[in-house]
Simulated assay, not measured.
Amino acid sequence: MLTRRRALLAGAATLGAAGLAAALAPGSANRSASAPPAAGAPPARRPLRPSEYRLQPLTGYGPPRTVPGRTPVRKEPLLRVPDHGRTMVLTFDDGPDPRYTPDILDTLARYEVRAMFFVCGEMADYNQDLVARMADEGHVVGNHTWTHPLLTSLRRGRIRSEMERTSDVVEKACGIRPEWFRAPYGAWNRAAFQLGAELGMEPLAWTVDTLDWTEPGTRTIVTRVEDGAAPGVVVLSHDAGGERSQTVRALRSYLPYLLDSGYHVTVPRREYV
């Protein structure tokens, strides 16, 4: 009796080299024979498995412009976002606060607008449900230290602790670590820039300060935002740290005005340059 290999070799003259290669391929005994493609027709391409789709390049084949995940060490914070059309960014500091943050989130949701929330770790720890809601609704959760100290008066180890603890609680609440950082009082120093970069965060300041923490009145806050509106502007407001009902009411007024004026209110995209 011929062995399987001898039988295959004996049939090689009939099958040809391509047929022999296919017959000798691993697992060939379990495959059903199929007719060869018609002359001149390209062979059928097998469908990609789901995991292979993720490996396909989306744009071009060249190397990335930068190393993914490497955050540059800045010498000053970013004050604006790139002027891609009439784009503006709304930011809220010091929260979350269950007295005011939900109302702000409700207004943003009503107009389908995303914003940035620079949270303090001790507030985020007590209100992890609000941090999770921010992320779930598409907002960016940034790092505003744990206790809102003046960083320029702290040693490097304390600054790292303030930042790192806040990043940890944000990750615990919404599953991702912050990619943006804002120094309390806008007081930056070399250590803050270096440590922020080490923790994968870009420093973002602001262009328009509503000074809402002084409680100047709802109309004054609205006027400051509307007068300061311009492409690339970053607006600073607060959703915690004091009485913030004026901020809540002001947002309800100036947000539809900005949208009706043609501004695209959204969140910035990380760009490594």
Rank of each mutant, 00 (worst) to 15 (best):
M1H: 12
L2M: 09
A7K: 08
L9K: 04
G11H: 12
G11Q: 14
A13K: 07
A18W: 09
A23Q: 12
A25P: 06
A25G: 10
G27Y: 11
S28N: 05
S28R: 02
N30K: 14
N30G: 07
S34A: 11
P36R: 09
A38P: 02
A38D: 05
A41Q: 06
P42M: 01
A44F: 02
R46H: 10
R46K: 12
Q56I: 08
T59I: 01
G60C: 01
G62F: 12
G62N: 10
P64E: 09
R65A: 15
T66D: 08
P68A: 11
P68D: 10
P68W: 08
G69F: 07
R70H: 13
K75G: 15
P77K: 01
P82F: 02
H84G: 15
R86E: 13
V89M: 05
V89R: 03
V89I: 10
D97E: 01
D97F: 11
P98K: 08
R99S: 08
Y100F: 15
T101A: 07
T101M: 09
D103E: 04
D103P: 07
L105I: 03
D106N: 14
T107R: 07
E112L: 03
R114A: 15
R114C: 12
R114P: 10
A115R: 00
M116T: 05
F117S: 06
E122S: 02
M123Y: 00
Q128H: 12
D129L: 05
V131I: 06
A132S: 13
R133A: 03
A135W: 00
E137C: 08
E137P: 11
V140W: 02
V141D: 09
T145E: 01
W146F: 01
T147W: 00
H148I: 04
H148M: 04
H148D: 09
H148K: 00
T152A: 14
S153E: 14
S153P: 09
R158G: 00
D168A: 15
E171W: 01
A173E: 15
A173L: 10
G175R: 01
A183L: 11
G186M: 09
A192T: 03
F193K: 01
G196Q: 00
G200T: 11
M201D: 08
P203Q: 11
A205Y: 06
L211W: 13
D212C: 12
W213R: 12
W213F: 07
T214Q: 15
E215G: 08
E215S: 08
E215N: 15
R219D: 13
T223W: 05
V225T: 12
G228T: 10
A229H: 04
A230F: 05
G232W: 07
V235T: 11
V235K: 06
A240D: 08
G242R: 05
S245L: 02
Q246Y: 03
T247W: 12
V248T: 03
R249L: 07
R249E: 14
A250V: 13
S253W: 04
S253R: 03
Y254V: 01
Y254C: 07
Y254G: 15
L255S: 00
D260P: 06
G262T: 00
V265K: 11
V265H: 04
V267R: 08
P268Q: 05
E271I: 14
Y272N: 14
